[in-house]
Computed example of a mutant assay.
Amino acid sequence: MKSFILAALTLVGAAQATVQGFDISHYQSSVNFAAAYSSGARFVIIKATEGNTYTDPKFSSHYTGATNAGFIRGGYHFAHPGETTGAVQADYFIAHGGGWSNDGITLPGMLDLENESGYAACWGLSQSAMVAWIKAFSDRYHSRTGRYPMLYTNPSWWTSCTGNSNAFVNTNPLVLARYASAPGTIPGGWPYQTIWQNSDSYTYGGDSDIFNGSLDRLKALALG
């Protein structure tokens, strides 16, 4: 698995091609998936869960719509680190749509790591405790699905909340949030981002995501 990810990262980073995608949640009550596909988008990441009590009410319909339109798709979990263990939240995510299957069209789940209004910065955890929490989530997801989750973060959060940890470079693909004309400096020792969330506004709803490679490499990420 480690050798595959390193090879994939190298190939992705070297590739000139990119693939448009987007991510959505219940804030997008309806999405014209057919139009998005016709415009060139090929993957969708859909909010499934948050913490260990919340399920996104639009997940099922969004997931079905994306599948029917021909997208490679997957779910994401908005982390509440420290409220419950990483393993508990991984189990909750998997139980509510965030699992992975080797069908060629399912992305590994994505763990959304960022601050939330109304909560303490870094969820009140020390840098070492945050790294341990992420690892617990990642390891449980891997033990149950055979895949490591993608990690979504921004450089500021990752530096502040994990001490710019490089603990996940060889296992977890990076989904980098940076709204700019270029990805910029990559945090955490990752050589490249696998997906770049380059804008919080996408024509067909949600945020714009750019896969750093060709469609064949995106399909390889889905296949594992």
Rank of each mutant, 00 (worst) to 15 (best):
P57E: 03
S3P: 00
Q127D: 06
Q89C: 04
Q28A: 05
T194I: 14
P155Q: 12
A90M: 08
A66L: 12
P187Y: 09
M150E: 04
G13F: 13
I46L: 13
D200E: 11
A41W: 01
W133T: 02
W100Y: 09
W157T: 03
T85I: 13
L11C: 08
F211Y: 12
Y119M: 07
N164T: 05
I186E: 13
A36E: 10
E116A: 14
G97Y: 12
D216Q: 15
L215K: 10
S201H: 12
G109N: 13
A167M: 02
T153Q: 12
G99C: 08
A66P: 01
Y54L: 10
N154W: 14
N172C: 15
L113A: 11
T53S: 15
Y54M: 11
A129Y: 08
G82M: 11
P173L: 15
A95P: 06
S165M: 11
I72Y: 13
L6Y: 05
A36N: 14
N102K: 14
S165Y: 13
L113W: 03
I94S: 01
A87F: 13
T159K: 15
A182R: 02
R217G: 03
T194P: 00
F78A: 08
I105E: 08
G188I: 06
T194M: 14
W133N: 01
A36F: 09
V175C: 15
G206M: 07
A34I: 09
L176T: 07
Y119V: 02
W190G: 02
S199I: 08
A7R: 15
N52H: 09
D216P: 00
K47V: 02
L176R: 03
N198I: 00
N198S: 10
G21L: 11
S61P: 00
Y63M: 11
F93Y: 13
G118R: 05
D200C: 03
G13I: 09
R178F: 04
W158M: 07
S39W: 10
Y92K: 02
T194V: 13
T159A: 14
F78S: 01
N164G: 06
Y76A: 07
H26R: 04
G189S: 13
T55D: 02
G109V: 10
N32I: 05
P183L: 12
G184E: 06
Y152E: 02
N170W: 09
I210N: 07
T53G: 07
A121Y: 14
I45D: 00
W158N: 02
N52K: 04
G74S: 12
S60E: 09
S29A: 15
F71K: 02
R144V: 12
Y192N: 15
F43K: 00
S181W: 10
S128H: 14
G51H: 12
G70S: 11
S128P: 01
G86F: 01
Y202P: 00
P81I: 04
A14D: 07
